[in-house]
């Protein structure tokens, strides 16, 4: 029982990070119908920006406890801002020239951008893993045989907070409404005077900022980062978005949590070697039996 609860807690914490990243996939797919393969790399870059920001703000590994919560927040915000800029640049340089191109061209380009960012990161940050600064001091809580750290609670809380903020933004603000309009019908939205290019750019900015937040939380949780880490985590987050129903914000949140829990349950009860495989099994099962995802709606092709 305690194994179960422990894996559940860990799964929810990892899952909420997947959920944050999944939001970016879902938003971009919603507006452009594009799987932004490079999103996982934006997550990775956000994580690295956080690392450098922490040192820039005077983080000292020997006196980690003296790093103020204020500075830690600043690290988060800087990473989010930096990633937002990266995301907008990617859209502007690689995807915008392809608007209206055959459907597969943007997908292949996205794979290209993903590879490009990975390799730039290898050159810029070196291929060796780095340790993420512990900008928040870890406290352990024992609770009925289950270990919960303040960091795990923090991860969960920040994720939920950001998701609620996004939900509010998309549902209640003009820009959010414009995003939804574009996702329903891009040409019609343009005709109604929605500045589509600007809104799409903003979509990338927001998605990227959320991915960077996910990156910082991941860094806090796993403490190790490397240039290629975005690949697998990005894929898992994308699968979370598909599981929940791509284009659906709540779906992404639910999908992320489910994937996180499924993964750690597999690791706990079957074998950690198949931890990654379970995600792909879920993907295949969902696409074969409910391709629209848990919360998605069916769109039938007109004949």
């Amino acid at each position: 029982m305690s194994t179960f609860l422990q894996q559940l807690v860990n799964g929810l914490s990892v899952g909420s990070i997947y959920a944050l990243i999944a939001l970016g996939y879902t938003m971009v797919y919603g507006t452009l119908g594009l799987i932004n393969f490079a999103h996982g790399e934006v997550f990775m870059i956000g994580c690295y920006i956080g690392l450098y920001a922490a040192f820039w703000l005077g983080y000292d590994a020997l006196a980690a406890a003296s790093f103020s919560p204020m500075s830690a927040t600043l690290v988060l915000l800087l990473a989010m801002a930096g990633a937002a800029i990266v995301g907008m640049l990617i859209e502007r340089l690689a995807y915008r020239p392809l608007r209206g191109a055959p459907r597969l061209a943007p997908l292949i380009t996205a794979i290209g951008v993903s590879l490009l960012l990975q390799n730039i990161a290898v050159l810029a940050f070196s291929a060796n893993p780095r340790k993420f600064p512990s900008i928040i001091t870890e406290h352990r809580l024992e609770f009925a045989g289950v270990t919960i750290t303040n960091i795990k609670i923090f991860i969960f809380a920040v994720s939920i907070l950001l998701m609620l903020a996004l939900e509010f933004f998309v549902k209640k603000t003009w820009t959010g409404r414009a995003m939804r309009a574009i996702s329903f019908n891009l040409p019609a939205a343009k005709l109604m005077g929605v500045p589509a290019d600007r809104v799409i750019s903003l979509t990338f900015a927001i998605g990227s900022a959320l991915a960077a937040a996910g990156g910082i939380l991941f860094g806090l949780d796993q403490t190790k980062l490397e240039p290629l880490m975005g690949n697998m985590i990005g894929l898992k987050a994308f699968i979370a978005a598909v599981l929940g129903g791509i284009g659906n914000i709540r779906g992404a949140a639910i999908g992320g949590l489910l994937i996180g829990v499924a993964e750690l349950m597999t690791a706990g009860y079957i074998s950690s070697g198949y931890r990654d495989a379970i995600t792909f099994v879920i993907l295949i099962v969902i696409l074969l039996f409910r391709p629209q995802g848990l919360l998605g709606v069916v769109r039938q092709e007109k004949v």
């Binding site: 690689a94 392809l98 191109a101 061209a105 943007p106 292949i108 380009t109 794979i111 290209g112 951008v113 993903s114 590879l115 490009l116 390799n119 730039i120 050159l123």
Partner: peptide, 11 residues
């Protein structure tokens, strides 16, 4: 790096 640039440029 060259591959990825080739891929993007080609597309």
């Amino acid at each position: 790096l060259a591959y990825s640039l080739l891929l993007i440029g080609l597309m």
